[in-house]
């Protein structure tokens, strides 16, 4: 466990809490891609199946529960409680374009051909593309609420910090997981464009609106 990892997990948790607070307080999920949130719920479900079999630490177990809860509550709020405010026609990214390649790849490229390992690999690959429906929705609507950009910022920051964590672990423990690192780099690249807009627009107090 190192500082990058802790900051990364805190940033990830903060992103989920920002999203939950935004939806709960504004009683609306306008501008939020329900599909991305469903993908995140699938990511955590397929990744944390070892919740009851592998015990790493209290921290690890508690955080897994919290992440699962946040993901499912968010999906419930979007498709359940506030479904009337759900912007369905703009959330039109075809999930099969993500799920099929990711499923195929997790059967081809994995550490070992066991169910748990394949599901873990699937969750890693899926997480790297899970934000695409949300970014696609923003590019389609041409703008995003400021609170949504803060959510995306912390979500992107979490993975950038995880990259630093992997460099750190490689230096200190000579340990690295190629699958996680490669897909982590891909995931962070997807955020670069957003980071640029966030820094040049949102941090200057402007609304994030795409040209």
């Amino acid at each position: 466990m190192n500082i990058f990892r802790i900051l990364g997990d805190v940033s990830h948790l903060l992103a989920m809490i920002i999203l939950l607070v935004k939806i709960w307080r504004s009683k609306s999920c306008a501008g939020i891609s329900g599909k991305s949130q469903v993908l995140f719920a699938i990511v955590f479900t397929s990744r944390y199946l070892d919740l009851f079999t592998n015990f790493f630490s209290i921290y690890n177990t508690v955080m897994k529960f919290v992440f699962l809860m946040c993901a499912y509550i968010t999906v419930y709020l979007i498709y359940g409680k506030f479904r009337k405010t759900f912007d369905n026609e703009n959330d039109s990214f075809r999930l099969e374009f993500l799920l099929i390649p990711v499923t195929g790849l997790s059967f081809l490229e994995n550490q070992s051909f066991t169910p748990l390992e394949i599901l873990w690999t699937f969750s890693i690959y899926l997480e790297s593309v899970a934000i695409l429906p949300q970014l696609f929705m923003i590019s389609k609507t041409g703008e995003a609420e400021t609170i949504t950009t803060h959510y995306l910022f912390f979500l992107g920051l979490y993975h950038a910090l995880y990259l630093a964590n992997w460099i750190w672990r490689y230096q200190t423990e000579n340990y690295y997981d190629q699958i996680a690192v490669v897909s982590g780099v891909v995931q962070t690249i997807f955020y670069c464009d957003f980071f640029y807009l966030y820094v040049t627009k949102v941090l200057k107090g402007k609304k994030l609106s795409l040209p």
Binding site: M63, K64, W120, Y162
Partner: peptide, 10 residues
Amino acid sequence: DQESKRHDEL
């Protein structure tokens, strides 16, 4: 040892 470290991240 490497094996025990696998998947210890969130």
